Computed example of a mutant assay.
Amino acid sequence: MMRRVAIANQKGGVGKTTTAVNLATALAASGASTLLIDLDPQGNASTGVGIARDQRSPSSYELLTGTATLADASRPALVPGLSVVPAHEQLSGAEVELVEVPRRTERLKAVLADAVLPDWVLIDCPPSLGLLTLNALMAVDSVLIPLQAEYYALEGLTQLLQTIEQVRSRGNPRLALLGVLMTMVDRRNSLSGQVEADVRAALGSQVLRTVIPRNVRLSEAPSHGLPALLYDLRCPGSEAYLALAREIIGAPAARAA
Rank of each mutant, 00 (worst) to 15 (best):
Y151M: 08
L131W: 06
R255Q: 15
A197S: 13
E155V: 11
A240V: 03
L218T: 12
V199S: 04
V96Q: 09
A153P: 08
I7N: 03
S57Y: 12
Q166C: 00
A87T: 00
D72W: 01
T18I: 00
A197H: 12
N172S: 02
M2K: 14
V116A: 13
L191A: 03
I7M: 04
V167D: 01
L161V: 13
E196M: 13
S74N: 05
L160F: 10
E150C: 08
E247Q: 13
V79Q: 14
S74H: 03
S60P: 00
E97Y: 05
V121H: 10
V21K: 00
R246H: 14
L132N: 09
N215C: 07
T34Q: 04
E106K: 12
I123M: 04
A94I: 01
T67E: 11
L23S: 12
R246Y: 10
A68N: 07
A32K: 14
N9D: 09
L147Y: 03
T163C: 05
D119L: 09
G237Y: 06
L112Q: 04
A254N: 07
T69V: 04
A139L: 02
T25Q: 01
P222W: 02
P252E: 13
A149T: 12
L39M: 04
A68H: 05
R209L: 15
R3D: 06
G66E: 06
G204H: 05
L175S: 04
R168H: 06
V180E: 08
P222D: 03
L117G: 11
S223L: 10
L64K: 07
L177E: 08
R187G: 12
A139I: 02
S169R: 14
R56A: 01
D38Q: 00
L181M: 07
M184W: 01
S205H: 13
H224L: 09
M184H: 04
G13N: 08
A228K: 00
T47V: 14
N9C: 08
A24G: 10
N189H: 12
R187K: 14
